[in-house]
């Protein structure tokens, strides 16, 4: 029972990284129609940024939780304004290729500056060791990461459900053209939504820094799993992205515990299974083109 809860917690913690990043990927795809291949590199920048913030600026983990996503928000805004926007009227494949190119450039620049080897980052003081919960000793940082991810996802959900901005984002995510035909100013929200999506990937990276090996390539594997998450959840479904993020995290954690050699394969088996049973994903309507 104890190890079951531990694997569940571990799954929720890494699922939280996927959920946060997939949430960003889903809102960007919904509002802009862009499959952002650079999302993995933004996650990596979040993690590398956290290490660099400490090493070069003495910024604590707690400060990085705020500052790094904010910096990535600005970076996302510049990326959208400077590059992505100009290709929005063309076939979505162009922006897919553009963001793929951006990934290559970012990864190489990070390698050039910080090398290819892992950058160590200690678990922040106060989140080290174990915490006693219901008679079980659980890693404090994993509890924190899982809780914070859930909290951020809930906060984003509240914004999406309770505010006018959220209503517009939900409508634009479901049917961007129809929203325009109803006079909704979707264009006004394109830049902030892109920045916000990137910031979420960055936040996932900050949270991952103390638990994962921080390298320039850490986003490469991440983006592949992230695409699986989005496909499982249903392309264009915000709720689906979050739910599938946590599901994939759990599959990965239990896979690593009981069949480590197949931990990642299981994710893609799950994806194939979902596609066979429900080609639009668990929560996708299939109407978004």
């Amino acid at each position: 029972m104890g190890s079951f809860i531990q694997y569940t917690l571990q799954g929720l913690a890494s699922g939280g990284f996927y959920a946060l990043a997939a949430l960003g990927l889903a809102v960007i795809f919904g509002v802009l129609g862009v499959v952002n291949f650079s999302h993995g590199s933004m996650y990596m920048l979040g993690a590398v940024g956290t290490v660099v913030a400490l090493d070069e600026f003495g910024l604590s983990f707690w400060a990085s939780l705020i500052v790094v996503p904010l910096v990535l928000f600005v970076f996302g805004v510049l990326l959208e304004r400077g590059l992505v926007r100009w290709l929005l009227k063309l076939d979505p494949l162009y922006n897919f290729l553009l963001t793929f190119g951006v990934t290559l450039v970012i990864v190489d620049l990070v390698k050039r500056r910080y090398g290819s080897s892992g950058m160590p980052y200690d678990t922040p003081a106060g989140l080290r060791g174990q915490i006693a919960l219901g008679g079980l000793e659980l890693p404090t940082y994993q509890v924190f990461a899982a809780l914070l991810s859930v909290l951020v996802c809930v906060a984003v959900w509240v914004i999406l459900v309770k505010t006018r901005v959220g209503m517009i984002v939900r409508a634009a995510t479901e049917e961007p053209d129809r929203s325009r035909a109803l006079g909704v100013n979707v264009a006004m929200w394109v830049t902030p939504v892109f920045g916000f999506g990137i910031a979420l990937a960055g936040l996932a990276g900050v949270l991952a820094a103390p638990t994962r090996s921080v390298t320039a390539d850490m986003g490469t594997n991440f983006i592949i799993i992230l695409f699986a998450v989005v496909v499982i959840g249903g392309l264009g479904s915000i709720f689906g992205a979050v739910a599938a993020g946590f599901i994939v995290g759990l599959v990965e954690a239990f896979g690593q515990a009981y069949a480590p050699a197949y931990a990642q394969v299981l994710i893609f088996v799950l994806m194939a299974g979902v596609l066979l049973v429900k080609p639009t994903g668990l929560f996708g309507s299939g109407e978004h083109s």
Binding site: E174, D177, A181
Partner: peptide, 24 residues
């Protein structure tokens, strides 16, 4: 003009599939 500007100029759109948002 774009569809959005036409809507803001006073054209109302009632599509054949009703265009109702499932998430709203």
């Amino acid at each position: 003009r774009t569809a959005e500007r036409r809507a803001r100029a006073g054209i109302g759109w009632v599509p054949d599939d009703r265009g109702i948002y499932a998430s709203l």
